[in-house]
């Protein structure tokens, strides 16, 4: 039991670290595309580690399954949103090179 809890703490802690990294990147990086990169990292790794850490704590199989589905959906959303935002930035640059 203790071992499981320690695993959870470690994994959630790691997830928090990546969220921290993502937020810092979002705030500190100089241009939009590198900020986007940092954000995707937070979504992928941060969320992944938190789900990984919570999995052993889930009370029943359905909840565990839902956790995995949530993670998969976040991956998909992050990938798509990243692409779309990058495209959006590209379009914006082309239209208005000064920006």
């Amino acid at each position: 039991m203790i071992l499981v809890d320690m695993f959870t703490m470690a994994a959630v802690g790691a997830g928090m670290f990546f969220f921290l990294a993502g937020t810092v990147g979002l705030l500190r990086f100089p241009d939009t595309l590198s900020r986007l990169h940092a954000l995707t990292k937070a979504d992928n790794l941060g969320f992944g580690f938190i789900v990984l850490g919570l999995l052993p704590q889930s009370p029943d199989v359905l909840s565990g399954l839902k956790l995995v589905v949530v993670w998969l959906l976040v991956q998909l959303a992050a990938a798509t949103a990243g692409q779309l935002i990058a495209q959006f930035v590209g379009l914006e640059r082309r239209r208005d090179p000064a920006a």
Partner: peptide
């Protein structure tokens, strides 16, 4: 840029999901 603002919204969305979990 609007893209930057949207990224913040994105972070809050996934972060909110993680908080809910």
């Amino acid at each position: 840029a609007p893209a930057d603002r949207m990224m913040a919204a994105q972070l809050l969305g996934t972060g909110g999901g993680a908080i809910a979990l």
